[in-house]
Amino acid sequence: MADKQISLPAKLINGGVAGLIGVTCVFPIDLAKTRLQNQQNGSRLYTSMSDCLIKTIRSEGYFGMYRGAAVNLTLVTPEKAIKLAANDFFRFHLSKDGQKLTLLREMLAGCGAGTCQVIVTTPMEMLKIQLQDAGRIVLNIKKLMPQAVTPEGPVELKSPTAMQLTRQLLKEKGIAGLYKGLGATLLRDVPFSIIYFPLFANLNNLGKRGVDGPAPFYVSFISGCIAGSTAAVAVNPVDVIKTRLQSLTRGSQEDTYSGVTDCIRKILRKEGPAAFLKGAYCRALVIAPLFGIAQVVYFLGVGELILSYLPKRNN
């Protein structure tokens, strides 16, 4: 039997569509996750995910829950496209004559996908975290100093925009500024993909119709949810470290970190091991539907359908 060729453009479209739908659905929970992970014992504003979302709506309005969404929606298409297409690419080339992949080869394919995606993931997460956490920083400042005063008079504290943050980072630190936390991102995304893709593939195979038949869409959705939430919780400690490293603006009573090792040491000393699980349930709630939706779009073949309507070029 001839190997089935991968339609890369279709996979890229599937990943992009899935990312846009998924991010729109779960972004408020992701914002709560970032703020919960960033708050330290000396500056606690939120007690839970629901408390965080309620206080965000009160202080920043409904659309405050979507701070940083524009960055995510802009970059999630290439990020998800690279992740899903790279995994497909590596699985295809690691398979021998169309035979089923071994678990080790499935993990290698996931490792390759996780490594490729950080090209887009790191700057996307960097800007997103700055924007998501800006409201928490402003609230902290207002608690200590209700109104900022300059020689010209009182000044209303405002959160920066994505463009302002990007310009500032590029001006002060160049392109490297957008890649702060790259090591932590690799430490999170590579293990995530090593766990997620083999787990999803094996769960999805359990629901297949016959030997060669595809799994029903609901099986793909449930498999994506289970695999996504499992992998998300497993790598949450590294996600906490990455979030702390990529948050450049901190409250006056909050620690700053020089690197991964320094971050681990300070968190353990001042907050204890439990701090590495901050936002774990939020992250599971974000990742489960995100990857469930992604896999449904991917396996329904939305990209293939779109490409089928485009005029074909004659050779």
Rank of each mutant, 00 (worst) to 15 (best):
V118F: 12
M163N: 05
N72G: 12
R136L: 10
D189S: 08
N140F: 06
Y218K: 07
R35P: 00
N315T: 13
Q39M: 05
L290S: 12
P237H: 07
A85T: 11
L187G: 07
Y281K: 10
A86Y: 05
G16K: 09
T243L: 11
R136S: 08
I226Q: 00
D262N: 14
R44F: 06
Y66H: 08
P160A: 05
F200T: 00
T256D: 01
L187C: 11
R209F: 03
R67S: 09
V190L: 11
L101V: 09
Y179M: 10
Y298P: 00
K171V: 12
D88C: 08
E172N: 15
L305C: 09
R269I: 12
P28W: 07
L307P: 00
Q132W: 06
A274P: 00
L187Y: 04
L310W: 09
F221Q: 04
V120N: 03
G181S: 09
Y281A: 10
R136C: 02
P123M: 12
A274T: 13
K142N: 10
P191M: 07
P9S: 05
L178I: 05
A70Y: 06
L8G: 01
N314I: 15
I6F: 02
G153I: 12
L203V: 03
G98P: 02
A232Y: 04
R188F: 11
Q40E: 13
G114Q: 04
L84S: 01
F192K: 06
V190E: 04
R58T: 01
L187V: 04
R265F: 14
K55D: 05
S223T: 05
A274M: 14
E125M: 15
K266V: 09
R167D: 01
H93N: 11
L12S: 03
C116W: 12
E125I: 14
L186I: 15
S95W: 03
M145A: 13
G207D: 01
T230S: 09
M107G: 01
I29R: 03
V211P: 00
E125Y: 14
V155I: 14
I293G: 01
L36S: 02
S258L: 14
Y179R: 13
G153Y: 07
E79H: 15
P78T: 09
K100V: 06
K83M: 08
L186E: 00
L199N: 02
F299V: 06
N315C: 06
G68N: 04
I306L: 15
F221C: 10
R188A: 13
I137S: 02
V71K: 03
K80Q: 13
A232H: 03
I293K: 11
I141K: 15
R58A: 08
A232L: 11
I119G: 02
F27Q: 02
E254Q: 13
G303P: 00
Q39N: 01
L199I: 09
A294P: 00
L307K: 12
S48F: 07
K143D: 08
A2K: 11
R265I: 14
L248R: 10
K4R: 14
K55F: 04
A231L: 07
R209Q: 12
T161C: 05
I241Y: 06
L178C: 05
G259N: 12
N204K: 12
A294S: 15
A148W: 12
A176F: 13
I54C: 04
P191N: 04
A32C: 04
A18K: 10
Y218W: 15
P151M: 06
D133C: 09
L84M: 09
M1A: 14
D212G: 10
